[in-house]
């Protein structure tokens, strides 16, 4: 029987509007931003409308880069479209200064290295163009970067 690869692709391009555009711009510039809601909370990624009052949200504020894992799930067998080709954690991650968490992949190496409350920082893609993949993944924050050198010696 004959078989062949069949790829169906819809090449959508969508306009962002100023609020989501600010978030995408931030990613390109290696800066995380959120929007400040009417009650003072900071929503990340920025929401265009206040979740309570429905007002336009227009104040974009910088958050992070440090962040905290609020919940997570370990992926033992990543598939082709996952952001990492090795086991990793999908996690909800709350950047410092934000009041809401956002979804991200954590390149932690092993399941034992992940826990709720884990401190993480972004790993940025080398080439960025203002899209979510600019934030390649999150990695555990190294409080003692000398560790690596220490082990080698």
């Amino acid at each position: 029987m004959l078989t062949a690869p069949l790829i169906i692709e819809y090449p959508f391009k969508r306009t962002t509007g100023p609020v989501i555009g600010a978030f995408m711009t931030g990613l390109r510039e290696r800066i995380l931003v959120g929007s400040r809601a009417a009650d003072g909370r900071v929503i990340v990624p920025p929401a265009e409308f206040d979740p309570v009052t429905g007002e336009d949200l227009t104040e974009i504020v910088e958050v992070g880069p440090g962040a905290e894992v609020t919940t997570w799930a370990w992926v033992t067998e990543p598939h082709a479209k996952h952001p990492l080709d090795r086991p990793f954690a999908w996690a909800l991650i709350k950047p410092d200064g934000a009041d809401t968490p956002m979804l991200g992949a954590v390149d932690a190496g092993s399941i034992d290295a992940v826990h709720t409350g884990l401190r993480v920082v972004p790993r940025w893609a080398d080439e960025r163009e203002g899209r979510i993949e600019d934030l390649a993944c999150w990695v555990p924050e190294r409080t003692t970067p000398a560790n690596v050198e220490y082990k080698r010696s």
Binding site: M1, L2, T3, A4, P5, L6, I7, I8, E9, Y10, P11, F12, K13, R14, T15, T16, P18, V19, G21, A22, M24, T25, G26, R28, E29, I31, V33, T58, E59, I60, V61, E62, A80, G130, R131
Partner: peptide, 28 residues
């Protein structure tokens, strides 16, 4: 909208590519 100082003066992103791709193996 008001932007944080770190994003003032940079060119703003206005659109994103969001292709939806479905990979099949077609068996005739």
């Amino acid at each position: 909208i008001t932007l944080p100082a770190s994003l003032q003066g940079v060119e703003l992103v206005r659109s994103v590519r969001t292709p939806a791709q479905l990979d099949y193996q077609f068996t005739a």
